[in-house]
């Protein structure tokens, strides 16, 4: 049952990442991987809200498996992020590679903190 919740979240999260990436990548001309950046930041914000809600007693562990482990886990990606950073560095855009790594981590950590703080107060 728990495993099915994770799968149900993932079959939505993974295609949603693919479609969001396409949507974002079609709308800019730079080599910066904005698609993955946006998807990871968004997933971190949602997971932050969910974590804050669960800690405040407003979300069940089943909801955490469906939306957290399944949806947000599959929506966000570390593999594409690291491969895109590697390709930027290999093709000579070393500054953009470093900027992508630093900004992705800082924005991701910030989004989780923001989401959980807001949800923690809203659902308290």
């Amino acid at each position: 049952m728990n495993w099915l919740l994770v799968v149900a979240g993932a079959v939505v999260g993974a295609p949603l990442r693919y479609l969001t990436d396409r949507f974002v990548q079609a709308r800019h001309d730079s080599v910066f991987p904005w698609g993955t950046f946006v998807v990871n930041a968004g997933a971190c914000l949602v997971l932050g809200v969910l974590t804050g809600a669960v800690l405040a007693g407003a979300g069940s562990s089943r909801l955490a498996l469906l939306l957290g482990t399944g949806l947000c886990g599959a929506l966000s990606t570390y593999s594409t992020f690291s491969y895109e950073t590697l390709r930027l560095a290999e093709r000579g855009w070393k500054f953009l590679a470093a900027a992508n790594a630093a900004a992705s981590v800082l924005v991701g950590l910030g989004a989780v903190t923001l989401g959980s703080q807001v949800a923690g107060q809203l659902f308290a």
């Binding site: 693919y18 599959a74 570390y78 594409t80 989780v112």
Partner: peptide, 21 residues
């Protein structure tokens, strides 16, 4: 394999939540 399996296997959001926890 790339977008699906490895994208679904790895996670940025859990990484950020682990840090916050």
């Amino acid at each position: 394999a790339g977008t699906g399996v490895l994208g679904g296997f790895t996670t940025f959001s859990a990484y950020a939540v682990d840090f916050s926890r």
